[in-house]
């Protein structure tokens, strides 16, 4: 399967072949300036078969899921959902992403939710800063403190009993997909 077919088979990649490269997605994107490959270009690269360049890129990790691109696209390409699909592919094939710490916070988020059933922000953020750059945490400390003082950053996670059944389901799901 070619890379373009691989992407077109995902939810979010369905219409990439319909793209006419008009650039309205990139023009609309609030973070295009931060991206090495903004949405229009990433579609061009997918269609050029440049798998490694695309999946190791930090570009889609800058997507804010504001869906402005998706709203305006004249060809019904859904670039925001495409970004999710590309991140998911990059994660599945363990690409190392340079130039953004977004993957680290995503991993912290998911492990916090799996461990507790619900996300525990303080735990998630601490884990994130420990795995990336603990010094940055100092800059943000005043914000955290204000939240803490206003009961918006509980110290201990709210462990829901649902976490056990969630973990069992995820395990089972991985078995099912592994066997397919």
């Amino acid at each position: 399967m070619s890379f373009v077919e691989e992407v077109a088979a995902t939810h979010g990649g369905e219409n990439i072949c319909a793209c006419i490269q008009c650039g309205i997605c990139t023009g609309s994107c609030p973070t295009a300036g931060e991206m090495e490959y903004p949405p229009r270009k990433i579609i061009a690269l997918i269609r050029a078969g440049m798998r490694g360049e695309v999946l190791s890129s930090s570009s889609m990790w800058h997507c804010l899921s504001c869906y402005m691109c998706t709203l305006r696209c004249p060809r019904d390409v859904r670039p925001a959902e495409l970004a999710h699909a590309l991140k998911s592919l990059a994660s599945r094939y363990n690409y190392r992403i340079k130039g953004t710490r977004a993957p680290a916070i995503y991993h912290s988020f998911v492990s916090s939710m799996i461990n507790n059933g619900r996300v525990h922000e303080l735990g998630m953020i601490l884990r994130y800063y420990l795995t990336t750059n603990p010094l940055v945490a100092l800059k943000i400390f005043p914000v955290g403190l204000k939240l803490l003082l206003r009961r918006r950053m509980p110290l201990r996670p709210h462990k829901t009993s649902g976490r056990r059944s969630l973990a069992r389901m995820v395990k089972k799901f991985r078995e099912i997909r592994g066997s397919h």
Binding site: H84, I105, Y106, M113, R174
Partner: peptide
């Protein structure tokens, strides 16, 4: 949320 979907769309 978006985070989980960005690591594993189907899960």
């Amino acid at each position: 949320s978006v985070q989980y979907g960005s690591l594993d769309e189907l899960e």
